[in-house]
Design a protein around this nucleic acid. Structure first.
Lengths: 164, 164
DNA sequence: TTCAGTGCAAAACGTTTGCAACACA
DNA sequence: TGTGTTGCAAACGTTTTGCACTGAA
């Protein structure tokens, strides 16, 4: 999980870890929201991990139950509304959130190991005309999509189930 | 919701409504499972609706709470294990199940209206080589994907929110 | 007859909310 | 100081499970 899928110096959309914490909190302040301890802590964790995190994971990563679980839920709701995080669903009934890099639309997908739950960011996307075609054919507008890939990662292929 | 998106005489993958109920129950019997009232009722509803249904929806469609909610959950779990239904997640925290046509792998996607929740089946799929490329690049095997489209349906575009 | 399947109730789980106490601006 | 935010606890909706009873084969 520590190795970056795209090598050193990558600047792909999910690389929000590059945004310094002060820039993130400033964004809060600018929109008339208070910069509190819990919010800073949550942002710092999202920034450092740079991958989709479940609310439970974020809460457990906080030092000594520093903040209430409900507060993390409320923080994520706020950040989602501000467009600072994106929500992903991997089909296990748990919402996951990932920090978005500043100025990037952040649209990307994931490849998830069904054995160990390792997550790799996938920048590739479906052909644009495919979405347009589907929208037109059915009379829909404002069409978006959710796409996630599932498989077995290299470490888990030997029958050995890796950690994480 | 009653109009078929592909017109009359369609034979696309999700058209499991064509499979007669006796054929479905036979499948159960062949695998040493009992054909009970609740199971027949659930299958009949899935067959007639021919679209992804939430467990709650299935239960409410049953005549007069004919069967317990837990029984519907157990029935869906069984049918899923037998490969007779496919599970879909539309990102609202509710699992939906759709009956699969006999002999078809049933792989397809959906276009969901974010206003009225109307669901249209989508047969189009991502390019095969895209999935293969993503698998190889990341050292994954047995890669599958989940893809759903979201937009605003024709009836909901006027600002008028349609029923259903 | 027998064991898989059922109904009922309780619990597990992720998530939301009401309210009094609190702390950032 | 005042309002937005927090912690706590309770409520919520979906899903699972334990257990005694029932009914399909």
């Amino acid at each position: 999980m520590s190795t970056h899928p795209h090598g050193e110096g990558c600047s792909c959309a999910h690389e929000a870890g590059r945004t310094p914490l002060p820039d993130l909190t400033d964004k809060l302040r600018r929109q008339a929201h208070k910069v509190t301890g819990p919010r800073q802590a949550v942002l710092e964790i999202l920034r450092r991990q740079g991958r989709p995190l479940a609310i439970r994971e974020i809460h457990q990563a906080l030092p000594e139950g520093d903040c209430d679980l409900a507060t993390v839920y409320r923080a994520m709701h706020l950040l989602k509304g501000m467009g600072m995080v994106q929500r992903f669903d991997f089909g296990d009934g748990v919402a996951r959130f990932e920090l978005l890099a500043e100025g990037v639309d952040g649209h990307h997908h994931h490849l998830i190991c069904v054995r160990c739950a390792e997550v790799v960011a996938v920048e590739e996307c479906i052909p644009e005309e495919m979405e347009r075609r589907i929208a037109e054919r059915n009379g829909f507008t404002a069409v978006t999509h959710k796409l996630e890939f599932f498989g077995i990662c290299a470490r888990c292929q030997g029958g050995v189930r890796c950690e994480t």
